[in-house]
């Protein structure tokens, strides 16, 4: 079967997770008070960002390292680095 939702899509992937996040929300208050749309929770292709009422939850373990959140955050509120060498997503095909 071909996938029908993001959970199934992410399940296809192999990740070699680091213990430390390579994505950092610089100021959680900015998400809370200035960003009603929480756009990163919409356009992130891996649903890494989830708003939990008070805080932005960052599931860096499932990140594709595309860079959209860094460029798309309207408040430049995301510090974006590469995971440590050899870590993060491991594409096997395309």
């Amino acid at each position: 079967m071909s996938t029908t939702n993001i959970e199934e899509k992410q399940f296809l992937l192999r990740f070699k997770c680091d213990t430390k996040s390579h994505l950092t929300v610089l100021d959680h208050d900015v998400c809370m008070t200035q960003c009603p749309d929480k756009l990163c929770t919409v356009f992130c292709p891996a649903e890494v960002y989830k708003w939990e009422g008070k805080r932005m939850q960052v599931g860096y373990e499932g990140c594709h390292e595309c860079g959209s959140c860094r460029i798309g955050c309207p408040y430049q509120n995301i510090k974006w680095e590469y995971p440590k060498g050899g870590h993060g997503i491991v594409f096997r095909l395309a």
Partner: peptide, 14 residues
């Protein structure tokens, strides 16, 4: 065209 296919990988990139 994709009917009956089996997803093997999902990828995102800029």
């Amino acid at each position: 065209y994709i009917e009956g296919g089996e997803s093997a990988e999902y990828l995102a990139h800029l």
